[in-house]
Structure formats: structure tokens, C-alpha cells
Simulated assay, not measured.
Amino acid sequence: MLVVHAEFPIDPAKREEALELVRELAEHSRAEDGVVDYQVATDIDDPSLFRFTEQYEDEAALGAHAETDHFGTFEAALPDLLAGEPEVTRFDVSATTDVEL
């Protein structure tokens, strides 16, 4: 499994525009083959910081996601929305276990 964690600092003046694009991106991404989970949240201290947590079955699923129209639309709009540098980290996961709380 592959996990991608991304943070995008969005210009507060463009937050509503970004929200619309992110909602569309997340909705379509969740329906893709090979997507295990696709979540987007905003930071509680900075509502213009968007955090993506994406899980893919394998490299092929991640590659296919990057080729979709909805990803392309978001990627094209992103430079005009950003208020800083994005941070993206990829994790290659060989095993997972549930944590009991």
C-alpha cells in the first residue's frame, strides 16, 4: 500500500475556490479503482491549510490517479491558490495493524 500525505497552504482570499476544487477532487478520487481511502481536512488553527491523506493499493493506482482529469484540473489551478510551498510525503507501507484505544 502507498500512503501520500500532502499539505497545501491556501491563500485565505481563495479558500472558497479551493474548497470547491478539493471537494470535486476528493469525490472523484474516492471512486477510482485502487484508491483505498482519500481524505481532506483543514487545520483547526489555520483553516486555509488543507491536509490530504491518500491511500492507494499500489503504484499503478497512484499513477492512474495522477493521470485523471480531476487531478489535472486541481493541479492546474493550484499555483494560483497557494500561499506558500506545499509539502508532500509518500510512505511505502508493507503492513498495517489496528490500534486499540
Rank of each mutant, 00 (worst) to 15 (best):
Ser48Lys: 07
Asp46Gln: 14
Leu81Gly: 08
Asp37Gly: 03
Val36Pro: 00
Phe91His: 10
Val88Thr: 09
Val4Glu: 00
Leu82Phe: 11
Ala66Asp: 09
Arg15Met: 05
Phe50Ala: 03
Val93Ala: 04
Pro12His: 06
His70Glu: 13
Arg23Ile: 13
Glu20Leu: 08
Tyr38Phe: 12
Arg23Tyr: 08
Gly63Leu: 02
Ile10His: 10
Phe52Met: 04
Val3Ser: 06
Val22Trp: 09
Leu25Tyr: 13
Phe50Gln: 04
Leu62Lys: 01
Asp58Ala: 04
Ser94Phe: 07
Glu27Tyr: 15
Met1Gly: 10
Thr42Asn: 10
His28Ile: 07
Asp80Tyr: 05
Thr96Asn: 03
Asp37Ile: 07
Phe8Ala: 03
Glu32Arg: 00
Arg90Ser: 10
Arg30Val: 07
Leu82Lys: 05
Val35Pro: 02
Leu101Ser: 13
Gln39Lys: 11
Pro79Val: 11
Glu57Met: 03
Glu24Trp: 01
Arg30Ala: 08
Leu81Gln: 07
Val88Arg: 08
Thr53Cys: 04
Pro86Glu: 07
Ile10Val: 13
Ile10Asn: 06
Leu82Gln: 08
Ala77His: 03
Glu59Pro: 00
His28Ser: 07
Gly63Cys: 01
Asp46Asn: 15
Pro79Lys: 01
Glu24Phe: 01
Thr53Ser: 08
Val88Cys: 08
Glu32Ala: 00
Phe71Asp: 06
Ala41Asp: 06
Tyr38Glu: 02
Val22Ala: 03
Val40Glu: 08
Arg51Ala: 06
Glu67Ser: 11
Val36His: 01
Thr53Phe: 11
Val4His: 03
Thr73Asp: 12
Ala31Arg: 15
Asp92Ser: 05
Glu54Trp: 02
Pro86Asn: 09
Tyr56Trp: 05
Pro47Trp: 13
Glu27Thr: 12
Ala26Ile: 08
Glu59Val: 15
Leu81His: 05
